[in-house]
Simulated assay, not measured.
Amino acid sequence: MKKQLALASAILGLAVSFGAPVVSHAAYQLNDEVKDPTPALKEAAAIGVRTHNTEALQNLPNKDAIVVMSFGTTYKDTRAKTIDATVDAIKAAHPNTKVVTAFTSHIIRDRIQQKEGITYPTPEEALAELKKDGYTRVALASLDVIPGMEYNYDAAVYNLYKDNFKKMTLGTSLMYWMG
């Protein structure tokens, strides 16, 4: 059940990202009674699926990629049953789109590299490589369960890299709640 929910959340975020044209917005909107929101309140309200279009890059051809971001795990069997299975389902749902798995935990990445010889990129490394390879539209799919520290890392990556691509989206964590 958890795997199905995570997959549904990831695929929903991707459907939003590559679907019909979307204006740059988040899923939450401040109450109309808030007349003069501070910059901090505006940032706090920017939760939900985020979409950014970089106007200066709109004439570039579409070349799509998905970066599946996860904290990661050093347990091989668990990784195969959870992260790899979800990434495989995303690849099956988007057969003509490059899909990259990126781990946000630097410790997990280092341990996997040392024990298994497998190198997973950080989200930043994945995006730098995609930019170098000419990808123009990137969906960031988070496999985080709750919108905590790791999801804030995902949001920071989105904010730091969104202007490097024609279009970038960031999906929500599985148990995202819009109060």
Rank of each mutant, 00 (worst) to 15 (best):
G134T: 10
G134I: 13
G134E: 12
G134A: 11
G134Y: 12
Y135R: 08
Y135L: 12
T136R: 12
T136K: 12
T136H: 12
R137A: 03
R137G: 02
R137S: 14
V138I: 15
V138N: 11
V138M: 13
L140K: 11
L140G: 06
L140S: 10
A141L: 05
A141N: 04
S142T: 14
L143K: 02
D144H: 12
D144W: 01
D144F: 01
D144N: 15
D144A: 12
V145S: 13
V145N: 06
V145F: 15
I146A: 10
I146Y: 15
I146E: 15
I146K: 09
I146L: 13
G148F: 05
M149N: 01
M149W: 07
M149F: 13
E150Y: 14
Y151G: 00
Y151H: 15
Y151D: 08
Y151W: 10
Y151I: 01
N152C: 06
N152Y: 06
Y153R: 06
Y153M: 04
Y153K: 03
Y153T: 14
D154Q: 09
D154F: 01
A155P: 00
A155F: 06
A155Q: 06
A156V: 04
V157P: 00
Y158W: 11
Y158M: 08
N159R: 04
N159M: 05
N159V: 00
N159H: 12
L160K: 14
L160R: 13
L160W: 01
Y161K: 09
Y161P: 02
Y161R: 10
K162G: 04
K162N: 00
K162P: 01
D163K: 14
D163T: 12
D163V: 09
N164T: 02
N164G: 12
N164S: 13
N164V: 08
F165V: 04
K166D: 06
K166H: 10
K167C: 06
K167W: 03
K167Y: 05
K167D: 01
K167P: 00
M168Q: 09
T169H: 03
T169D: 08
T169P: 03
L170Y: 08
L170M: 08
L170P: 00
L170R: 07
L170Q: 09
G171R: 05
G171C: 07
G171I: 07
T172G: 01
T172R: 13
S173D: 02
S173Q: 05
S173N: 02
L174F: 07
L174H: 04
L174R: 10
